[in-house]
Design a protein around this nucleic acid. Structure first.
Lengths: 204, 204
DNA sequence: CCAAAACGTTAACAAAAGATAAGAAATTGT
DNA sequence: ACAATTTCTTATCTTTTGTTAACGTTTTGG
């Protein structure tokens, strides 16, 4: 894991990615980027670890990560993040409580980082406060929608249905991550997913 | 379903409930409450219905509601809200897309309502905009934490474990809500929950 | 390039959950 | 108070999933 200055290329990618939520004028942008850091995480290294507070929210410039828990000595992968997405152990970041799981890079991953300290400073900086509150609101609302869908699928769908839906709605994830992580994500074992695949005979 | 003016008692309950997220000075409060409505929903009536946009977010003064989907003609209850909690079909409210499910009162329920139109107006009202952005952020972040926990439990726990944890962490819900709704909430059938209860022999 | 590790499939068996139906118990509405 | 409805349990049977282990393939790391 290394930190350094941020390239203009990375900043431009970030600015485009943020446009989904908020845009800055030049004054604001200049101020905003003074609060950012840059970090790279080598493949298999960890972005955050269990029992430590996750102090950072990251925006992935390139690479990918998974979030996993350990249960009975076995890793269980709960979600993934890819380029142009945020990654954090949100509950830990937001509440400053220790993480219950790990975030690990699946590839060498480059991120722009907003530390919780810098986020707090921006929320107190008159030039940025309003926009950062709004930014935080819109990002949180975006994730609420994602999470709501996911919970609904656990409640109303069978594992097989969740798999078939995922094939259609998230073909990218299906191709980029190992199948046993997908199984965890769907809430089943890798063996069970292999059987579902054989049963449904839908190979994308 | 009826609307009317809001009693001071209800407003005080609301103000206390909001204090978890945000406080208002008297000027702000006077302005804020001019955007609120009051509504009662009779037992078994609906707060929001499938295929219509959920235009309201409600704060429950008293009563309770459940959120359910219909799958193959059967109702599947996804969550509950009680006194001093918010209720909405959040994704529909936030994105202005039609609901995928129903929100129904379990008892006669009284709510203070923030319509999405009034929320938009407050977000444009200079006296309130900043605080409402912040309020929205904090509420959304609160729900992200709840949802994250729930997804993690679907990924890492068995139905039996989820039941036992729920007994400990949400005894209130267990007592107030019919068991077959709890089963849905846990992601299993009512018959299966009955078996788990027999197996574990833990009756609160 | 080779050994080790990781990954996916399959099989066999056990455990759990789903589906359906029947009946008891509790609640509700009139 | 009592009939109707809802709720919970139980039983039976089927389907699915979990568990463990074996095996072949692919990928990884030196």
């Amino acid at each position: 894991m290394s930190s350094s200055n941020i390239s203009n290329e990375a900043l431009n990618i970030f600015r485009k990615g943020l446009a989904q939520f908020i845009t800055f004028d030049e004054n604001e942008w200049t101020e905003f980027i003074s609060y950012l850091n840059y970090k790279t995480v080598e493949k298999k290294d960890h972005f955050s670890v269990k029992d430590k507070v996750c102090d950072d929210i990251g925006f992935i410039i390139n690479g990918s990560v998974r979030y996993y828990h350990i249960k009975d000595g076995t890793e269980i992968t709960g979600y993934f993040s890819f380029e142009n997405e945020f990654v954090s152990s949100y509950k830990s970041y937001l509440t400053q409580q220790p993480c219950t799981g790990y975030i690990q890079a699946l590839d060498k991953t480059a991120l722009i980082i907003i530390s919780s300290k810098n986020m707090d400073l921006m929320l107190k900086n008159p030039l940025l406060a309003y926009k950062m509150e709004r930014f935080g609101r819109l990002v949180a609302e975006y994730y609420i929608c994602c999470y709501e869908d996911r919970i609904t699928s656990f409640i109303t769908k069978t594992p097989e249905e969740r798999y078939l839906i995922m094939l259609q709605t998230e073909p990218e994830i299906m191709q980029r991550v190992p199948q046993h992580y997908i199984a965890n994500f769907l809430g089943i074992t890798p063996v069970s997913l292999s059987r579902i695949r054989k049963r449904t005979l839908v190979f994308a």
